[in-house]
Structures are given as C-alpha cells and as structure tokens.
Design a binder for these strands. Sequence first.
DNA 1: TGCATTTGCATGAATTTTCATGAATATAGT
DNA 2: ACTATATTCATGAAAATTCATGCAAATGCA
Lengths: 167, 167
Amino acid sequence: MVTQRSFRANAQPPATPPEPARFIDGYLAYLLAQASHRISGEFHREVEAAGLSVTEWRVLASLADGARETIGTLSQLTLTKQPTLSKIVQRMERQGLVMRGSMASDKRQTLVALTPQGQKVARRHLRRALGHQAQVLQPIDPQEAQWLIGALHRLMQLPPGPDSSAG
Amino acid sequence: MVTQRSFRANAQPPATPPEPARFIDGYLAYLLAQASHRISGEFHREVEAAGLSVTEWRVLASLADGARETIGTLSQLTLTKQPTLSKIVQRMERQGLVMRGSMASDKRQTLVALTPQGQKVARRHLRRALGHQAQVLQPIDPQEAQWLIGALHRLMQLPPGPDSSAG
DNA sequence: TGCATTTGCATGAATTTTCATGAATATAGT
DNA sequence: ACTATATTCATGAAAATTCATGCAAATGCA
C-alpha cells in the first residue's frame, strides 16, 4: 500500500470559463498523438477483437499490395523497434500469415511477404479499415479531409532536424 | 536460429514511377500515426537523453500549469493505461517530481501535482518543446500550421462511433 | 438506512517490448 | 585480395506494460 497526503478540492470554480489556453492546445506533437489515438482507437479494438495485435495489423496492411518488405522497412512502417518486429513476424509466420525469406542479393536482409491466408485476412481488415475511415470522416467536409491528408504528408516529408537516429 | 527460404530480387524495376497510390497514402489513421511519430521523435530522444521517459514528460507537461489531475485523467492525457500510469506516477513521486494525495471530496481518487522541483524540470522541457516545435514548423506557412492545429482539434472532438470503451 | 452496483485506483502475475549484443554479410579503402 | 568498418537481423536478459483482480469509496434505489 502506498501512503498519500490529503488534498482539498480545487480552489477554482468547476465551471468551464474562457479556458486559459493550455499549453497542449497549441502543441502540435500532443495534438497529433491524441488525434491519432482517437482515430485509430475504435478500429484497433475491432482488430484486437479479431485476434490480431495492432502491430500485426500494421504488418498485414503494409504487405497487402503483394509487396515484399525487409524487417527494417517493416519496422519503420509499423513504428516498432527492430527486435520487436522480428519476433512479431516470426509469430505471424508460425500462424501462417506471412512467409520469411532471405534476400538473394543481400543475405543479411530478411524479406517478408503475405501467404495466401495472410492476403485473405489482410483484405478483410482493409475493407473494414476503409469502412471505419468513411464513417469517421463522414461529418467532415471531404475537401477539408483531403487537405488534412495532404498536410500530414507534407509534415512527414519535412527535413529532419539536427539529430535524427532511427527509433 | 530460424530457418527461411530464399527469394529473388523484386521483379518490378527499382525506379520510382507515378507510385500506384498505396493504401496507406490515403489512410488517415496511418498518416496520423506516422506524422505523430515523425514530429515527436526528435524531441522524445532529447527528453530521454535528459533521463525522462516519454510518459514522464507527458505527465510533467500535463501538470505544468499548476493543475492537479487524477490518475484517470492523466492516463487519458498521456495515452497510457491506468495501471501503467499509476506505477509511473509512483516512481516520479519517489524521484521528487510529483506529489500524490487523495481527493477530499472523493477518497477513491488520487490527485497528482508537481513539486517545486517538478515545476522546474517541467518548465525547462516546455521551453525546449516550444523551441523544437518552432523549428519543425519553420518551413511551413504559419496560417497552414494554424489550420492544421484547428483541424486536429476538430478531429478529436468528433462524436465517437458505435463502440467506444476507454483504452 | 441498507444493499447492490459502479467507479477509481493499486498491485501481483503474465505478457510484451526493449536493450545489449553477437553473427553473418556487405562495403570501402589500401 | 585483405582488412577495417558498417549494416542487417536474431536472440537472451532486463525492463516496461498490460491484464486480471481486489479493495475502498461513491452512487442508486428500495
């Protein structure tokens, strides 16, 4: 058990006046993280209800067009560290969702591709993902949505700052 | 050791033609996650170099204006599950960064606030965060940046879909 | 008031992720 | 060709996160 002192209720009135413009309201990194969480959250619960982890779903989506990707590329696409992704891919191989193979022109690299079963699962979830996105964006002006997507692309392509090791 | 078959190099030419419009290029959830990672990444490495985890930084930022927040609220603000946040806050208390206390009007709830030392650390990193944001946004039209921030706010306030348990 | 239900948090056990490292291959320089 | 350095991935040990659960307090209702 952890001891703690006792606080009285907040001195400020509980109402919601003009809002003193909190730091986070103008902080882009926070807003992106929250918005990402908000938009992905519902669908991720759907994915997990189907027995996939979020990263597994990202691997499927990354390979859904038939491409073969290396562990390194996949780890960037799925925002996961390389050791984590190596293990997830190995588990997906055991589950019959992906195939792994060494690249002939560079035997250090491991190429990953979907199995036919993986394709099937990927396509099913891709459809649901697009459906979910349509539902989320429904109350939004399509042109504004398109603008947002463009803005996000531009953000991602900004030149990296001073430091920029992988993560 | 994990066995693997061998693949030949990709049949497609390695050039970068019109790009067949990948799924992810129009998928908002993916773009938000990548953009978030891209924008926060550099600063997070800076934070960790200073001995703070990302979630610890988020706790400091959430409390920096002197507010006291409950564990539940903090867990939403920091995008972390409640048990994780409980433990992180306890560690931060041991480090002298925050104080914990039970709320007088509802003794189930735990209120968290910064100590003077926590305030100092928070302010230092807030300054750096704003500096980093200014640097990131520098090549972007300020009006477009402002628009993006507004759009993200609107995204977060969208009505939740069918299901919507916490996460 | 008394009792059932709900809410908020802490905590031990299990799982997942990450770090640190090593092995194999590739690349660059001599 | 040979050596030094860099890259890519796998893996065991360590650390962090999450799940499942329990307790205490609040709320709803008869």
